[in-house]
Design a protein around this nucleic acid. Sequence first.
DNA 1: CGTGCTATATGTAGTACGCATATAGCAACG
DNA 2: CGTTGCTATATGCGTACTACATATAGCACG
Lengths: 131, 131
Amino acid sequence: MRRGYCHRHGQAYGPCSCSLGRMTRLVEPLILSLLARGEARYGYEILERANAESLTDSPIDAAVVYRTLHVLEQAGCVTSTWQPGAGAPQRRMYEITPEGRQHLQDWVTVLERHAKALQSFVTRSPGGGGE
Amino acid sequence: MRRGYCHRHGQAYGPCSCSLGRMTRLVEPLILSLLARGEARYGYEILERANAESLTDSPIDAAVVYRTLHVLEQAGCVTSTWQPGAGAPQRRMYEITPEGRQHLQDWVTVLERHAKALQSFVTRSPGGGGE
DNA sequence: CGTGCTATATGTAGTACGCATATAGCAACG
DNA sequence: CGTTGCTATATGCGTACTACATATAGCACG
């Protein structure tokens, strides 16, 4: 958004949350939430669901998903097991741990507060919903 | 939030938006909004107001404010003039330009959409407002 | 005079981002 | 049979950004 519009999605796209940067941070709570809700169980599926939910304007980087899964596993938030692929590549299946649920809870607290702060900011700002 | 709580604000702080990272990106719309609303006119004042509004849990870095002001000026979003300090250090006074207002408008559009997406996400997630 | 506040600005080590690339099994197509 | 494409996971790497530290300077206060 340096010159108004997105450098990644081209001129015609309009204001784009790419400019928010580090949306990849949201991949962490997104993964935990999908696992907690049972809507996805392995990396590739998470990637697809996450892109469908699209908290961000830009597609989520697969590399970020896989790396985040490793980080979450090292932190004890998820566990994984290999599942042999029957007529498909192997999948690394993930499950969320109690620690992971707590971590997600913390994220939700933070994001809820943040969403309200953002909403309040745009309401206050010229051109926002406030006037 | 790597181990549950904020590494910057200590153990007792609780879930903290520090973990969101790159909140500094929000400094740009924050500056533009404060200038547009006439609530601040120079770096130090912006810093104080921005910390008072606190879109984030962590105090805003002065370095980020000054650097962002320079970037915004180079992008034509603001203009600045030195004002001699009467009994105080000199101040570099800023004004927002029409381009800056447009840029702010784009930011507001993005942030409004993003705030709604976040709100929807926390509502969907376990522990969020949805159940 | 030394500490602290206002005020602006720069330096820098480390890290995260985002894109490119690697690997691999299987299917379908011509 | 070869090649393209999809599912699936994983790593490499140059650049940009973050976050903190530091520099400068005028003035006030005790």
